[in-house]
Amino acid sequence: MTEFLKRLLKTPQGAIGTFLVVLVLAIVVFGPMLAPYDPEKLSPLARYKGPSLMYWLGTDQYGRDIFSRLLIGARATVVMAVLATIAGTLIGALIGTASAFLGGRADELIMRTIDAVMSIPSLLFALLVVNLLGSSTVNALVAVAIAFAPGMARITRSVALSVRKQDYVNAAIARGESSAYIIRREMLPNVIAPIIVEMTIRVSFAVMLFATLSFLGLGAQPPAAEWGLMVSEARRYMHMSAGILIWPSVAIAIVAVGFNLLGDGLRDALNPRT
């Protein structure tokens, strides 16, 4: 484990990515405790304030403290994105592994169908699903998970197929190992690494997809402190104070870049042969 961490932190991507993601996760866990103000407390007298000692990042159109809102909104934004990505990955990995394992015509049929599903842009797919289920945070989570599943299925399948062809799997088959053992002990450890990498990178897409859904009015609902929603609400008041637009944007960017960098770092660190 320590050896793995050393390898991860050796590359600049891995080091910066780890730092940013740890920072974000710390905010997710401790954010609400650290927030200096109640994120939903309106102060009509303190609207559109610039950054100051009192309000570190200034206040928004209702006089709410932006810094507090960001600290608290991290949960809504990041946790949702991570959960949705994990759910989408699990569904996709299941379909992809099954497809690779079944092989033959079943595999072809599943993959053709996945291709067809992928011809609907994932944002549109998510929109349709949320519209179907009604707009709420949880439904947005389901929508993003479903929208990610086909892509993850494809990746899982291609990785599983390439592992499936390796001689160590052949050796296990020739030895008469059970399918369960082959999948669990021979294939899975080798399949999982690339999937973790892909999943990490996709968290950043999920963050953006969630924000976009909130922007279109189909994700989190006001007065929630979800970052995408904050940007979306700020649009009408951005002429009054650019800060209410900029800070949540920066927060989104940090999460997206952090997970992207971490994914690239993991790709190198998880390769057993380097």
């Binding site: 390796q166 001689d167 160590y168 052949n170 050796a171 020739a174 030895r175 008469g176 021979e186 450890p189 080798n190 057993p272 042969r273």
Partner: peptide, 18 residues
């Protein structure tokens, strides 16, 4: 399967790296 065993060309590929 116990009585018939096979050894492959590339040990890199036939031994699970993990």
């Amino acid at each position: 399967r116990k009585d018939v065993q096979i050894i492959f060309q590339h040990p890199d590929a036939s031994l699970n790296p993990r």
